[in-house]
Write a protein that binds this DNA or RNA. Structure first.
Length: 491
RNA sequence: GGGCCGUUAGCUCAGUGGUAGAGCAGUUGGCUUUUAACCAAUUGGUCGAUGGUUCGAAUCCAUCACGGCCCA
């Protein structure tokens, strides 16, 4: 594309007209004044005075100063939008004449008497008014707003200006994170910040992003999880820690995956996975009540009840429960289980053991059916390299995952604090990596050393904030709850 | 990576082979307590890109780009 074509696209007539208006404003003085201080917010005025009678309001003679973006212009009545909502401003004929250079999208400040119109709506009389920022680009259509998904994600600022629902979604997301932080802090958890740049990307099985540290001439990885560092803090004696921050996984993009996503991870010494399941259940219930005003979560036409006790069953039980045609005997025999998996169209590697095969069968046939909040427990040791083995059955670990709406929301377990067992599990992961599993873990020698100093018995958990935000905001795509989701750059 | 769908004015969308349309926004004027204000007039387009078929392509075909949904 030539520069000239670019200019005609970027600088169309509508923008050119506004630039001319801006040039005229510049010629008369400061085009970007920062002199106006609002003393009221639109929605607060609506809440406080919306129900007043017209005459009663007149008698009060309230003077207010409001500022915001011009969203509608009915000439005499104009609509101003601030962070809280909208309020009308009223222009007499003279004021209309004086503000002819104002456009929809401009940022303005208005001072004057708070009044009520004949139809009962509040407005601010434009006794004093100032154009604070000229908007050079026209806003989308006033009624339909911005609906083009691509543009909503690429130009989130326009989406936020135009769509109240988008603003609301991100307000709920923020409250969700604040609620989780408050919940944990109230229970004695310390908030920690551990490295995002790691030499050994540990704590999960996932492909990492690679970067390079110039001064050290060292390849580093963006973290896939904070887990191993948070547990070092447990070794250090913190006993209860948490971190809310981004993880990075070098995987595809979908309605459920963004390469960077937000997790809360927390670790509690002298607790086991049962206590974390209880805590999780209570926390989600508390958050639902705080944010949604009740324990029923409406999601895409379904209702998830956070008020009832969450279902709990093992991986093994859940497979049998949801697959009447599979027997316990088949699941317990590696050759028979392999045949079941292959019948289901699951691709297995030769090195995959029974635990991995069972897990694959679970993911294929059960996960998506777990609509109501469900804890699945007893994940095979083979697929849980950081989790404590079950005392009675070392084939499985004391681990759970929480599913809601068919999606994994949380993953937690009693932590493996046996340094020698951990070293052996890492060796097994390295063998899998060498056999071609790109997601297998690295051997983290220092983490084993940390465990050798002694980590108290501990339980830990990670909760995917984005997926939880999807549930709480009834959003079908993870992109709807991430302010700036990743997209392929435009051509 | 595969399948299906989409891409037309700043925005929301019509337009299935014969002169590129509407609403909103913009511009000009009118009205002046409106509620997506209203009335009149009016500006604005390489129809995602590149090839092809055709007398003629927004429309049919191919390739590519970007996006959406589903699958892997």
């Amino acid at each position: 594309m030539s520069d000239e074509q670019n200019v005609t696209q970027e600088e169309n007539r509508l923008i050119a007209e506004r630039r001319e208006k801006l040039a005229a404003i510049r010629a008369e003085g400061n085009a970007f004044p920062n002199c106006f201080r609002p003393n009221a917010k639109a929605q607060e005025l609506q809440d406080k005075y919306g129900e007043h009678e017209r005459d009663a309001l007149e008698e009060l003679g309230i003077e207010v100063a409001v500022a915001g973006r011009l969203m509608l212009d009915r000439k005499s009545f104009k609509v101003l939008q601030d962070v809280t909502g909208r309020i009308q401003i009223y222009a007499t004929k003279e004021v209309q004449q004086d503000t002819r250079h104002w456009d929809i999208g401009d940022i303005v400040g208005v001072k004057g008497k708070l009044c009520k119109s004949g139809k009962g709506d509040l407005y601010v009389m434009m006794d004093e008014y100032v154009l604070l920022t000229k908007s050079l680009r026209p806003l989308p259509e006033k009624h339909h707003g911005l609906t083009d998904t691509e543009q909503r994600y690429r130009q989130r600022y326009v989406d936020l200006i135009m769509n109240e629902n988008t603003r609301k979604t991100f307000q709920i997301r923020t409250k969700l994170i604040q609620g989780i932080r408050q919940y944990l802090v109230e229970r004695g958890f310390y908030e920690a910040e551990t490295p995002m740049l790691q030499v050994i990307p540990g704590g999960a099985t996932a492909r990492p992003f690679v970067t390079h540290h110039n001064a050290l001439d060292l390849d580093m990885y963006l973290r896939i999880a904070p887990e191993l560092y948070l547990k070092r803090l447990i070794v250090g004696g913190f006993e209860r820690v948490f971190e809310i921050n981004r993880n990075f996984r070098n995987e595809g993009l979908s309605t459920r995956h963004n390469p960077e996503f937000t997790m809360v991870e927390f670790y509690q010494a002298y607790a086991d996975y049962h206590e974390l399941m209880d805590l999780t259940e209570d926390m989600l219930r508390t958050l639902a009540e705080q944010l949604l005003g009740g324990t029923e979560v409406q999601y895409q036409g379904q209702t998830f009840d956070f008020g009832k006790p969450f279902i709990r069953m093992t991986v093994f039980e859940s497979i049998l429960h949801h697959n009447p045609d599979i027997t316990a005997e088949e699941l317990n025999d590696i050759e028979k289980a392999r045949a079941v998996a292959e019948r289901l169209g699951i691709t297995l590697r030769d090195a995959d053991g029974l635990g991995r095969i069972q897990t694959e069968i679970f993911e294929e046939t059960v996960e998506h059916k777990l609509l109501q909040p469900t804890f699945i427990t007893a994940y095979p040791t083979e697929v849980s390299p950081l989790a404590r083995r079950n005392d009675e059955d070392p084939f499985v670990t004391d681990r759970f995952e929480l599913f809601i709406g068919g999606r994994e929301i949380a993953n937690g377990f009693s932590e493996l604090n046996d340094a020698e067992d951990q070293a052996e599990r890492f060796r097994q992961q390295v063998a899998e990596k060498e056999a071609g599993d790109l997601e297998a873990m690295f051997y983290d020698e220092d983490y084993v050393v940390a465990l050798e100093y002694g980590m108290p018995p501990t339980a830990g958990e990670g909760i995917g904030i984005d997926r939880l935000a999807m549930l709480f905001t009834d959003s079908p795509s993870i992109r709807d709850v991430i302010l700036f989701p990743h997209m392929r750059p435009q051509a």
